[in-house]
């Protein structure tokens, strides 16, 4: 039996008809067409499906969609504003934090939460690596990913952010 699910998706109140056994990953991709949320291991190991649930990064493959009733969910599509890529996205392209791109949307969401929560505290290499330990990059482009996050935080501290 389908059930209605209402939550805030990328700043907009949204309602979908879902099966109660669907994961948030499936609903975001199938009903929501948010295909930046990548399906990969489906066991919480890789982080490619990371989204923000009430501003906290979670693996959407390990969340039952029915449990986000009334919550707020953000995918990397939600970072784009008026067709313009978010400064975080720009940092990843400028610093070559992207190779094949498969892990990127998950990395972006985790990094976004990290930078948002850090406030004025400058993020160190160690802090960034610890925060991103649940996101695997099989191109092993971690050095540039860490650099991208640092550059993105500089943009934020310079007022270039939303």
């Amino acid at each position: 039996m389908k059930i209605p699910l209402t939550f805030v998706l990328n700043h907009q109140k949204t309602t979908f008809e879902i099966d109660p056994w669907q994961t948030l990953l499936e609903v975001l991709r199938n009903q929501g067409r948010k295909t930046s949320v990548h399906r990969s291991c489906e066991e919480g190991e890789c982080g490619a499906c990371t989204v923000l649930l009430n501003n906290k990064p979670v693996n959407s493959c390990l969340v039952l969609a029915a449990s986000v009733q009334g919550a707020s969910v953000m995918t990397s599509e939600g970072l784009v504003k008026n067709g313009r890529p978010h400064p975080l996205m720009k940092a990843f392209t400028d610093e070559l934090g992207i190779q094949c791109g498969f892990c990127t949307p998950g990395m972006l969401m985790n990094a976004y939460a990290l930078i948002q929560d850090a406030g004025d505290t400058v993020l160190t290499d160690a802090v960034i690596r610890k925060a991103l330990e649940g996101n695997l990059c099989r191109c092993t482009g971690y050095i540039n990913i860490v650099k991208s996050v640092m550059v993105a935080q500089k943009s934020k501290l310079a007022g270039e952010w939303w």
Binding site: G44, G47, P57, N59, L62, N110, A131, E133, G134
Partner: peptide, 9 residues
Amino acid sequence: MASLQVRNT
């Protein structure tokens, strides 16, 4: 334990 994403739930 686990990762940030897992610890969050």
